[in-house]
Nucleic acid binder design. Structure first.
Lengths: 200, 200
DNA sequence: GTATCATTTTAATCCAGATTAAAATTATTA
DNA sequence: TAATAATTTTAATCTGGATTAAAATGATAC
């Protein structure tokens, strides 16, 4: 039986490796995690990782591409399902956070982009920039359709993305906190965006 | 004439070094910046840095302590001057951001706390925890005095601190952007906190 | 102006952790 | 089952950048 690319043992193991690496990098930082650390999580030897990636730089690079992909996926799904700007936002927050705290997490914090080699750095920066642009576009949609209050989209976008990107710094897998994150964090972020007057 | 501790050549140079290091660490990450990089900013040789710190770990540690100190200073000043919870918040946002983008900046992002040696790590974590607690206390003050809407203070605090801590990731010294940051960012953060209904 | 202290450099060493090559093991195919 | 391919390990090497010691330079005091 033919397996598609993501079902081969190789691809499954590689995916496991990226998650393990993201976890280590988020917790111990880039310099603080050795390939040995990542290998330990997987029950492998550090040298075995080289069967999947050329070097440590590529491991980080792939973690970041994955992070960008998951962020894009969350935003695209939200945009496809949402009714208006604010609705898309709320969905995006939820989908993205669900990924972070759920089975597909953790998602690597892109703290070390400048350490990537030129081509990789440029690519990740472009993905990152693209996500910001798409996010700002949703803000503008919301402002136009009246669901989101008028605001400086660039700065508001940076503020919100900062809140989200920082989550792995203080969330470390506590299930109860994960539940609250999914239900309450989106509201907190959206609260400042609402165009509707809040009634006491 | 007697000079106080912060006016000696030694202390001035050390302070310059911490700023240079914070700038490098924020831009290139911990692993991405060598002592050579930091020394270059100062027009010194890497070995010269050892006259001021025992090793690279201590350099990071001191950057983090400084970051914590400046954050505390901003919050204390805000608390001393503010009229109510919301007013304290707005002042804190402004004071803290002014430090980041002004002469006292940049302020190091605490991305590598886990890489610190045990005693330093514990101390920085404690400072960090203390700041969070103080911040949450202001939120609670505001909720009690009616200036801030009722909210989950722990999570709201994490959201806001994330926004602030992330600033150095995208702000790199553009003066015009710095001005906007000081004037507009506090409003953006405060918007979601307001207990007052927003009127169109 | 000399002695003393402060600061920086030069020129090595050192080392954790990345990387590699070859061998060993495990899975797959026919 | 034998043969081949995929995966992992063992056991080295390699290396950038941290660290150190001693010498050189610069400042300050007397």
């Amino acid at each position: 039986m033919a397996k598609n690319a993501e079902e081969t043992r190789f691809e499954l193991q590689k995916a496991r490796m990226l998650k393990a690496a993201a976890k280590c990098f988020n917790q111990k930082g880039y310099s603080g995690t050795s390939l040995r650390n990542v290998a330990d999580v997987l029950g492998l030897t550090d040298a075995a990782l080289y069967y999947y990636v050329r070097n440590k730089e590529e491991l980080v690079y792939l973690c970041y591409v994955r992070a960008a992909d998951l962020g894009r996926e969350a935003l695209e799904r939200a945009a496809a399902e949402g009714e208006n700007g604010m609705d898309i936002m709320l969905r995006y927050f939820r989908y993205h956070i669900e990924m972070m705290v759920g089975d597909r997490g953790p998602i690597a914090i892109m703290s070390e982009i400048p350490s990537l080699e030129a081509a990789h750095r440029d690519e990740v920066l472009e993905l990152s920039r693209q996500h910001s642009t798409n996010f700002e576009a949703v803000l503008e949609t919301g402002i136009r359709d009246g669901s989101i209050a008028d605001c400086n989209v660039r700065m508001t976008g940076n503020a919100i993305m900062g809140s989200i990107n920082w989550i792995p710094k203080w969330y470390h897998g506590d299930t109860e906190m994960g539940r609250k994150l999914v239900t309450e964090f989106p509201e907190i972020l959206a609260r400042g965006l609402s165009a509707k007057p809040s009634i006491d």
